[in-house]
Design a protein around this nucleic acid. Structure first.
Lengths: 345, 345
DNA sequence: TTGTAGGCGTTATCAG
DNA sequence: CTGATAACGCCTACAA
């Protein structure tokens, strides 16, 4: 069957193409029976509107670009995070008959702004969804906004100046985790930080400090180690710290990968987890439930965040009033598994 | 600055729009100096061709759809696999100025064919990349091919009838792994199979059987357990088998997730790996290097496969003669880590 | 409620 | 080598 176009449908239904257009786009002002005639014709001809033509005429692309950081060729530091983002975004795209373009990029790349402008200027995308650390790139965001293209941000570090954005209660939940560890009797709770350039990760450290204070413990800078989110770095600091004079009895990591490194180092050093050392992570990657001992960690509702962010974005694109703008903080939750326990005396 | 179009460029350069078009599309038959005039005008006006217009006129979309199975809302069984696919595909897209549309779907879904037809019929995509188990869905593939849209397949089970496709030497490498285990003195080597619907996974089992035979060992059906690629199922079978009268001394799993389950079950049962039990997986997910003991496994060049598949697809789309069609088997490799060792006596 | 005319920014055709 | 002109299929304005 040949591809049919709007003219074929109009001819078959005995109406004008504009009427067909109205029916297809669910515009008002079409009589029920003419609408039915058109629908029949569409069905009979198996007609589907041509996206390019529609885009050209309407100056829309029905495409959203998801931008995320893709640091290196042979690392997948946060494959789970990215996939959850995609799934959340796709869910909304589907219901709005949009498609999703994925655009991994290096946030350090100077050509990034140009690359993104290109997507906009040739009418390629109608909106952007930026995840951290791209959601912290002021210059990138400004570049996009200047063209009038809508953006939604996931977990931006700066919550004030941002346009549409969605966060979690990172700080509070990290305080909670720290208090939980303190409640188990731990006095020396170490913290391995995340990538310093990712501002939202700094919130986690603040939460850790809050938690210590709220538990009546002091913040020792010697117990705060600078990490880079990598497995290796969890191993490294564990070796360092556990061999020191006054080792911690609990280590709280800014992400699960580092916590896994801690676990592995503990194995090597023959330190029993959780009997001799408690370990907590952040992210709740699938691995954390599979490893032995299963990791106590924090679950971020990444998919829901992407979902929510895209909803807001679509509202903006479609010029709908959105009632969502107020409630854009989603709750993370504590997942207690096997890697944390009472402090040794 | 206002968006400029091809007419603006033509006017400024003092040529016709067709000449501009020629330059933009790198067509022959343009004098060097007129080309330069046009390029200057383009630079000056910051001109970028409008994708929708181009698509409409050329009946191309400059979009490739990547189809993969997305079994459930809250599972991410193979996030790493999917991400590698995406990265490989994106690499080629970038160099060909294509963009990538991701399209997770349920291969059991009856509406899938219709969904895909929709992508084609409204000129949304120029080609498809299908990964397993979608690359085994004859009806889906036929549906697409019937429209004349090119497809490339990753690891289809049926290597003969397939159009453009890319495989690995799954069977051989699994034989190799089995022989390796046998060479360590193991006589009772168990195998946990993958999802039965995914044909390429069956090749792995055949390889296991080959390996046993080549090592002079018998194939015992009691040592072959039907798995479903899940962590849980690795745990389950390990508990079952290790409590039986005549337990295996090595377990080879069709994927790393199941192998991780084996590892965890062994921990629980207080069975030492690799001293009392050797464990091998397949996939080389990041976890496999981080877990303790680190997993012996098989690395599939997923990214390169996607890369290669997309190259072939692009050749087809662009009507180029491809010299790649012959060499579409990429080699997997054995990664020996800590989870395998000499058989206990 | 429906239809007509014109234009969106390219690429393709074919003549020069 | 270059250019005028007609598609491409739809949408927006405006008319009826």
């Amino acid at each position: 069957m040949k591809k049919s176009n709007i003219n074929d449908v109009a001819a078959l239904a005995g109406v004008s193409i504009k009427t067909v257009s109205r029916v297809v786009n669910k515009e008002p002002n079409v009589r029920k029976d003419t609408e039915q005639k058109v629908l029949d014709a569409i069905a009979q001809l198996n007609y589907r509107p041509n996206t390019s033509a529609r885009n050209l005429a309407s100056k829309r692309s029905y495409l959203i670009a998801l931008l995320y950081d893709d640091p290196g060729l042979y690392e997948n530091p946060s494959s789970n995070y990215v996939l959850n983002l995609q799934q959340g975004a796709l869910r909304i795209c589907k219901s709005e008959t949009y498609d999703l373009l994925i655009h991994p990029c290096n946030y350090r790349d100077k050509g990034l702004n140009e690359e993104v402008l290109s997507l906009i200027h040739n009418s390629r995308v109608d909106g952007f969804l930026l995840s951290p650390p791209l959601s912290d790139q002021k210059s990138l965001i400004d570049t996009i906004l200047k063209t009038g293209t809508p953006i939604a941000l996931i977990s931006p570090g700066d919550k004030t100046a941002a346009p549409l954005s969605v966060y979690t209660n990172d700080r509070e939940i990290c305080a909670q985790m720290t208090e939980y560890l303190a409640s188990l009797g731990h006095k020396r709770i170490a913290f391995i930080t995340g990538h310093s350039e990712h501002k939202a990760l700094y919130e986690r450290q603040l939460g850790y400090e809050d938690g210590l204070k709220q538990s009546g413990l002091k913040v020792y800078s010697s117990l705060i180690k600078e990490g880079d989110n990598s497995f290796r770095c969890g191993e490294y600091w564990t070796h360092k710290m556990m061999k020191s004079k006054n080792p911690p009895t609990a280590i709280f990591c800014c992400n699960d990968d580092m916590a896994t490194g801690v676990l592995r180092a503990a194995h090597k050093l023959n330190i029993k987890v959780p009997e001799q050392l408690s370990v907590a992570g952040f992210d709740d990657i699938p691995l954390s439930a599979q490893i032995y001992p299963a990791l106590t960690t924090i679950h971020q509702p990444v998919r829901s965040m992407a979902d929510r962010a895209l909803k807001i974005l679509m509202d903006k694109i479609r010029n709908r009033e959105s009632d969502l703008h107020e409630s854009n903080v989603l709750e993370s939750s504590l997942i207690v598994r096997e890697s944390t326990g009472k402090a040794p005396k």
